[in-house]
Computed example of a mutant assay.
Amino acid sequence: MLKSVLKSKDIQIRDPFVLPLEEEGKYYLFGSTDKNIWGPGTGFDAYVSDDLSNWEGPHPVFRPPADFFAEANFWAPEVYAYGGRYYMFATFRRKDNDRLGTAVLAADLPLGPFEPVSAGPVTPEAWSSLDGSLFVDDAGAPWMVFCHEWQQIGDGDICAVRLAPDLSCAAGEPVTLFRASQAPWTTPYESPRYPDAINYVTDGPYLFRGEEGVLYMLWASFIDNTYALGVAKSESGGLLGPWTHQPEALYRDDGGHGMVFRLFDGRRALAIHAPNRTPEERPLFLEIAERDGRMVIAGPLLG
């Protein structure tokens, strides 16, 4: 069946993640694609482009099997080429305890179909966790970096846990990298569900290396109840930090949950969704650059 060709403004998506495949000259766009992502989960769709402007799709890349562990809140799929296959890290709300967790799926092709690799989430069963992201350290060991959710602990954490070589399960205990309130740019989130609590949100961590090997992390939170994106830097150059924060948010105009990828011309691009309101969220692509040891937005990209 022929798929539609769409502009970015036509695609409702949250948590956009771009997998560039240079050998194909194609960009693969994944994200939270249910029309009502706060309700029952349908699965994940993807889109394909050669210019970040015209997208062909949607392609159904994951639909849950009948015995799947979750049926709601299918969020933030990230797809990586790893070990000769394509691995998806995605968040789901468990049926058994109603908590969020990130599970691992895999496929032989970037458009799937993706099938579960882990037996449920690889994040701790007792935690409400989300937005797991793959990081491979200098020794070649895989880790998941994820959020311990603010709704459970108030001051949200960014954590890391080492994974088994096949990514099917955790291979150690989680380590806390930092808390949301430690960043100078965040402010408490005023939640109508928790009106008497002081909450700091962590959302959407993503790690990448700068030109000189500096390890950076994108992550999202709120400024005066407006969604925003910040940057942290590892002072040791390794995953365990310590992590310091750029004093100002990288993007604060009601957008976030970012990731960084290389354009085929060598420039770095930032993908976020904006605004942070359903059903208005759309993918936004910006050029990002490293200047004087900091990440900055260099300007818009076509899309």
Results as ranks from 00 to 15, higher is better:
V18K: 08
D138W: 12
D157P: 01
F178I: 11
G266M: 14
E22P: 02
G237A: 03
F146L: 04
P116D: 05
L207C: 06
T33N: 06
A269C: 15
R162S: 02
N54I: 01
E24I: 01
P174L: 14
P58W: 00
L105H: 08
T202P: 05
F208Q: 06
A180S: 15
E23L: 10
V175Y: 11
E211C: 04
T123G: 08
V5T: 12
P116H: 08
M1D: 10
D96Y: 14
A72M: 03
L109P: 00
W38R: 14
P195Y: 14
R85C: 08
P165R: 06
Q152C: 04
I297P: 01
S4W: 00
A90H: 01
Y189H: 13
S133V: 13
S221K: 02
N276G: 02
G154L: 09
W243Y: 01
R267T: 12
D253C: 11
D157A: 09
D45R: 15
A46K: 03
R209W: 10
T102R: 03
F68K: 02
A183F: 13
D45Y: 07
L302M: 11
V122M: 05
F74Q: 02
A164N: 10
Y47G: 02
S8R: 05
T42M: 13
L215P: 05
L301D: 05
Q12T: 07
A119F: 09
G213Y: 15
P165G: 08
T42P: 00
H148T: 04
N276W: 12
F69G: 09
D51G: 08
V175H: 15
K35D: 14
E125M: 10
V231C: 11
F92D: 06
L229T: 13
S181M: 10
D265W: 11
D203F: 12
L21S: 07
